[in-house]
Every structure is written in C-alpha cells, then in structure tokens.
Nucleic acid binder design. Sequence first.
DNA 1: TTCCTTGCAAACGATTTGCATTGGA
DNA 2: TCCAATGCAAATCGTTTGCAAGGAA
Lengths: 146, 146
Amino acid sequence: MTSPTLDSQIRGRLAEAGVRYTNGRQQVVAALVAADGPRSAAELHEQIAGAVPLSSLYRSLAVMADADVLAPHHGTKGVTRYELAEWLAGHHHHLVCVDCGTVDDIELPSRLEATLHDLVDAVADSGDFAAAGHALEVVGRCKACA
Amino acid sequence: MTSPTLDSQIRGRLAEAGVRYTNGRQQVVAALVAADGPRSAAELHEQIAGAVPLSSLYRSLAVMADADVLAPHHGTKGVTRYELAEWLAGHHHHLVCVDCGTVDDIELPSRLEATLHDLVDAVADSGDFAAAGHALEVVGRCKACA
DNA sequence: TTCCTTGCAAACGATTTGCATTGGA
DNA sequence: TCCAATGCAAATCGTTTGCAAGGAA
C-alpha cells in the first residue's frame, strides 16, 4: 500500500537515524498510510491483526517518532495517536469529534492556511515564545455522531 | 483569590447540577484561577499542598467538568489538564512548549480571533462536520526552554 | 434522614522496561 | 560479528472505583 517513493524516503530517514526499517515497522507505516487520521497503538495493533505485539509496537512508534518519521498526537483522553510526520504527509489539521473521539485529517485551502500562518506569526511576535508550528483542531460532531 | 462574583457563578452552576461547592473544590478552583494555564491533577495536588487527596481531586475535577465549570485539555502525553470553562475564563488559546510541556493561555486580538472564527466556519461548511468550536495550539519553545 | 462527598486501598488501562533471544547489514 | 530489534512478562504511571465513614441540607 505504501508507495515506493514514500517508502524509500522513510527508509532513508530511518537509516540516517541509525535504525532499521524492519518488516514489522513497514506494516505499521502501511497501516498509518491507509488511515485517514492519527491512530493509537491499540488501533494499529488491531489493524495489522496482531502481527506485531504491543510492546514492540510501542517501541517502534517511539523510535520512528524520534527519527521524525512519525508525529504523536494527543487529542483525546489517555491515548496517544501517531501519524506520518508533516514532511511526509503534508501540513494539515484535525477534526476532532467530541462524541466518539475520532480524529480526521483536513487540509485548509491555501489561502486560509496562509491567513492562519500570519495569525500565528503575529501572536508569536507579541510574546517571548518561539513559535515552531501550529495546530488547529476543529471540534464538533462527525457525520456519524451528528 | 477567587473573586466573589466568579465564586458565586460557579456555586450557582454547581447547584444547578445538583452538586456541592465544598471546601476542597473551592481550593481546587482557586488554584486553577491562580494558574495561567491548564493544570493536571498532580500539579493541583502539589499546588494545594496535598490538602485534597488525589482520588478526591480526580473526582472533583470530573464532577466540575460534567457541570461545565471546568474544561479538560489533552495537550501533552498521558496527562489531562483542566482549566476554567470558557464562559468563566473567556475564549482563549494555548501556547504549548515542545520541551517542557508547559501550557500557557493566550488571548488573540479580537480582529485575529474573528478571522480565525471565519476560517473555521469556512472549513466546517465544506464538509459533513458540525463544528462546535475550535482550539488553536501554538507550538514552540517557551522563554525558559529557548 | 437523605444524598453528596471524602479517603483509603485496590483495580485498571495505557505505556514502558528488563532480559534473554533473534535477525540483519 | 555486532548492534538493533523482538517477545514475553513484570513494572510503572495516570486515573478510576468499591466501600465504609463523614457532612451538609
């Protein structure tokens, strides 16, 4: 499922970080690529039918996040979900359903994204805080829960 | 520390919800009012010098969040932080430090807030998602960690 | 008296870690 | 050959809950 180019970008990045792109890790990445939003260790574990035990899964997620191949997301209570890092998945935002906790990716029209970017710059300038990025979460009810 | 009017708003809201505004809960609220951002159960427990045991603290936080006096925030790994609900604290956003995990409140200039609001409306309109609100997290490094 | 709240201890769920084994470059 | 990765079981951490005692209306 994972495109050859995406796969080699990831392999390259992991090699730079001195870690291997093993079979199990490829399965995890494939599952994340197939998903349309961040996924937790438990969700991935189920999605790959237990092919990788939870402890290894957690370790792989941590290693790949360290290598900047994955990015953690803390949207809903208690669980950490992971997604492909921005440089692989593209910059985007999230729709978080207040009822079921589902998180979906959204991409803003570039005009709106530019506006948002300016907005964050304006905020960062006005205080002693070095802004490195921003995350916009649109909170509401998804189609299924509406 | 908690202003009389704020305190009576909270007492009133809790009464409507059929729960009491006990001494321990007042201490928790006072600690949150004194804070300049969301706080976790452990942080509050320390701030009030263990005056309320953790289990009661967790229960009070849950009760007050149910009554819409507090709002939960899931910004950093594993922990839930609480802050006063929007109708008490005013609408605001957060600066999240990627190093130390500290969360600070920021208020956007009303012109920028209006822009952001329009932006979220535009996003919501374009999909099957009923937007109920938005949260902008500016990610970066705080003064101490820069 | 009635119901909410408190405290302690035990239970839980998500995540992490020690250790011996396996696997890849 | 050497170091990273794996799997299992045990440990940890934040949080929740059962239960008996205390407190306010």
